[in-house]
Structures are given as C-alpha cells and as structure tokens.
Amino acid sequence: MARYRGPKAKIARKFGEPIEGQSKVLQKKNYPPGQHGRGRRKKQSEYAIQLMEKQKAKYIYGILERQFARMFDIASRKKGVTGENLLQLLESRLDNTVYRLGIAPTRRSARQLVSHKHILVNGELVNIPSYTLKPGDVVSVRERSKSLEAITGSLTGRPSNRFPWLEWEASSMSGKFVSIPVREDIPENIKEQLIVELYSK
C-alpha cells in the first residue's frame, strides 16, 4: 500500500503546522525546510496557495494523489457543497475513524492496525484503511487484539466522546459512526474551497 514514508518534521515545517502530530521542531525551526528555507520569498501565487492546501489535506489524511483525486471526483458528483463533501468522505474513512475514536494515537498507526487485521466493522474483519463507513456502522477492536499495548496505551486517558458524530463504548472497545460530520465539527485547519478552485482550473 503506497503512502508517504518521509520525515514528519519536514512536512510540519513546510506547512508551519504539526501535520503528523505535535512536534518541537516548529519551535526550533519555524521556517520551511531546504537550503533556501530562511530566504524563501513570502509572496506566493494563487496556484501555489491552492496547491499547498491540497498537499496539506493529503498529508493530514495520509493519502496520495490518485486516491485523493478519485475522492474529489466522488465529492463533486454528490449533492451539496463539494469541499464539504470531500472532507466528509475523508472523515468517513475507516483508518481516520479508528484514529478519531482513540484506538490509535495517529492516523499512521490507525492504518497499520486496520491493515494488520485488528479492526472489525459490524463484526466483520476489514483490513482496507480506505473503507468508507456509513451512519450506523460499528467499529470495534478484534477480541484477541484488545490486550495489544499499542491499543490499550492509546485508549488510556482518552476523553469520552470527543467528536459529535462518533460514540464510544469503552467496555466493549467499540465505537459507532453515528452520522456524517458537518463541516463545523471537523477540527482540521483546511481551506477546502482552495482545493475545489484548484481542481476546477
């Protein structure tokens, strides 16, 4: 399965945000990476700004160009606002939901848990990270995986029901995808309209 395997700190510095989780690198080096990072010109073209926003969304959700373009195509054909549809599709991915429920500390580790067959959807084993959940679907930890240190460590001290579109049941280590999230509830700092404008060129 293709995914970005490069340095996380470089991505955080590129966008000036902790894309792959909290990092001290932004406090030490709050300028873009590379030989000309400090002296890079501040003014960017409209296209560059739109492209950066698309790249940021791809890195946040951990998907590559072809899959992202396919999701945008689906979002553009759905009723409603295309940018919001795109974010809703990204949030409905199984790996993202495993991360949001707190079963994994990062989306990378959530993807690994799904790929390594530790996660069930409605009682059935699903090992496809991009699997799209529907309202009412129940995501749970496989019985023999409940004692895994990676999972128990991530769930320790987890705040209850952090996201309004998800419900978590600690006793059974399962969560319900209650509804499609509305844009106001999605915490990611993404200007989705810029992505729509980029693909509309």
Rank of each mutant, 00 (worst) to 15 (best):
A170L: 10
E53Y: 11
R162F: 00
F15R: 06
E65I: 09
K24H: 13
L155H: 03
E46V: 10
N189D: 14
Y199A: 15
E124P: 02
S171C: 03
G37V: 12
R66N: 12
R66Y: 15
N161R: 03
E65L: 12
G62D: 14
E149T: 08
G16P: 14
V182H: 13
G37K: 11
P7E: 12
P135N: 12
A104I: 03
K14F: 08
K24E: 14
D95H: 10
L101A: 03
N96C: 09
P129D: 06
K79G: 14
Q27P: 01
S172D: 06
Y131W: 15
T152R: 14
L64V: 07
E192K: 10
H118P: 04
R38M: 15
K134R: 13
P33L: 10
L198N: 10
P135W: 10
K56F: 11
D95I: 03
K24G: 13
A170D: 15
A48K: 11
V178P: 00
Q193P: 05
S76K: 15
D95G: 08
R144M: 11
E124T: 05
Q112P: 12
D137H: 07
P105H: 07
E167S: 15
F72I: 02
S76D: 12
H36N: 07
Q22I: 05
R93F: 06
N161K: 04
N189H: 11
A12Q: 08
N161F: 02
I119A: 05
V178Q: 00
E65G: 11
E192M: 07
A2Q: 08
